[in-house]
Design a protein around this nucleic acid. Structure first.
Lengths: 182, 182
DNA sequence: GTCTATACATCGATAGAC
DNA sequence: GTCTATCGATGTATAGAC
């Protein structure tokens, strides 16, 4: 079961998350394709298991980060871990953070894991002075844009992602300025 | 020919850019599927025609923008037009600004249109003080992230995109500060 | 649990008549 | 140019034997 999901990630890395096929997956494991239905009642159920698994991987990575006491340094450490995780695996990144499979929506149980991740991020951001929903939306959009540009245009490189700390400072400074102005 | 491409956009809007099929397209036009090969030698050639068409639409929109003399106001006007165009049509947006079709790369002739668009944007940004490649990369990543978050999480709304002007100011202020510091 | 066999659908592409 | 007919591949899913 865990082997199946791990092998599915392997294939998704090779052929893209949308190019994953049950025939290919079964072949890779040494099974016949119908046998997979003993583990997952549909292909979407497999995607759901992968979605949950990916979020568990991410969560494990994030809780392992030692957060500095300084809130701004904590944001940088947290986001560095997040971005590193996102850049590692384009297929995993798209399944977790986009809707690449038409018709697939994660189940409530799996989505709950994604919400835990988001809550942790919001905690760290709030502690650093990003308080309003608008501030947080701007910040998450920037992180997403940076990761997306990096993966799309320079996978494996650092042309975009090297500006991560600079942009974090820019956002936090801006939020500070806006709050003291009131 | 123009009708075919226009109809293809219609279908892409309905079923996603990846869900576009030649059978469905021919049916919609009132043709049989093999007849399309009289116009396009392959499905990729159709995507290429759509890519070129979309960039021509965008270019037409951008040259119609009256740019204020103030460089910062010009950036805002230009980006407002760009973002408005991007948000209008998710399928068009993904074909023009991402790689949603495995194996499809625009032809050099079509890609040249995309480069014209990019050059215009860079001109406007440079005039407003974004000079280094890093400044411009940060800016484009932010715009992309904003559009992406808007389309993915709140299509038709303005939760993310309403911060466009604020983020433009933030970036331009930051670049100004960095350049005067030297 | 895993297998064989198969149903059923969709797809892009080609051959060849008109 | 457009058609009919068809190929060949790929895909998910199910039935039923072992």
């Amino acid at each position: 079961m865990a082997t199946i999901v791990a092998t599915a990630w392997d294939l998704a890395r090779q052929h893209g998350i949308g190019g994953l096929s049950l025939h290919g997956l079964a072949r890779e494991i040494g099974m016949r394709q119908p046998s997979l239905y003993g583990y997952f009642e549909s292909k979407h159920a497999l995607y759901d298991a992968m979605f949950a698994d990916g979020n568990r991987q991410l969560l494990a990575r994030l809780v392992a980060v030692r957060l500095p006491d300084d809130p701004r340094a904590a944001v940088k450490a947290f986001m560095d871990a997040f971005v590193r995780f996102a850049l590692e695996d384009q297929a995993r990144c798209s399944l977790l953070f986009q809707r690449p499979i038409p018709g697939f929506e994660p189940s409530p149980e799996s989505y709950a894991l994604a919400e835990v991740v988001l809550e942790r991020a919001v905690d760290v951001l709030r502690a650093a002075g990003l308080e309003s929903q608008g501030d947080i939306d701007c910040f998450t959009a920037m992180i997403g844009g940076l990761v997306d540009a990096q993966l799309s245009n320079d996978p494996g490189g650092d042309r975009w992602i090297r500006h991560l700390d600079r942009l974090i400072d820019m956002h936090l400074d801006d939020a500070e300025r806006r709050s003291t102005r009131r």
